[in-house]
Amino acid sequence: MATMTQTPARREPHGFFTDTTVCIGCKACEVACKQWNQLASETGGQQPLSGDSYDNTQRLDGMNWRHVKFIEQFSADPQRTQQSRWLMMSDVCKHCVRAGCIEVCPTGAIIRTEFDTVVIQADTCNGCRACISACPFGVIDINENAKVAQKCTLCYDRTTIGEQPACSKACPTASIQYGPLNGPNGLKAKAQERVQQLKEQGVDQAQLYGADDKIVGGLNSFYLLVDRPQVYGLPENPQLPSRNLGPSSALTTVGAAVMGLLGLVSLRKKRMDHFAGQPADRER
């Protein structure tokens, strides 16, 4: 893991565009991520079956930085009166423009890189785990080998030398695309074109998730979805943990003031007692 002692020159924001409509659930991205980032298998390579479709990874965490989700939408009706489909989505850290994990990290281990991505410095993190509960997407967790919080680095070591991340390189259908986010040839423009194309084909539910600034200031890893975000395990309205900082601190301060007053009134030795001849010797 690279460490950053000085801020490199800021570059154009880069990120991922994940088009879920062309994901085939091959999990090449998961394998490439594990291999490149040397993320060990947790079960000696014998992954027990979860029983949840083809999803045996189950979640993103410190050992799994890519997670292909399988969402089965099959009608229970034997006549198949409703359309059946299988949604697949390769999930990853969203590299939020306003990142909750950076807000709460007390050690400065979580930094924003020159690509506008979010990276945890493994040699700085001390494993306090504040970032885990701050992430509105449930992306971060402890890597049991490194004993620190870890997540996708957007292959910072590869991108700094001009390579694309391992997952997007391995993706056979270009479901995961890496590149600059903005501009006429940026990922956001490509994504808008793709949405338009799908709508013209009758896929009315096609929508982008995180491409604008409505979700925590924007997601540098954004998605094209064809159903509600919750169906994919994505929160519709994720929040930053700092939304509670002001009100919570203000109320606690009010509480402290009330407490001080109650203490002064309750513990005060009565004035008459004081005058009753007890010496006010503070040097006792």
Binding site: S133, Q239, L245, S248
Partner: peptide, 19 residues
């Protein structure tokens, strides 16, 4: 305050934990 400045159910639903 530490508990409320998270995204966890119960903790983040209230601002009264500190008090």
């Amino acid at each position: 305050i530490l508990l409320t400045v998270t995204n966890r159910p119960v903790w983040a639903n209230t601002n009264l934990m500190g008090w």
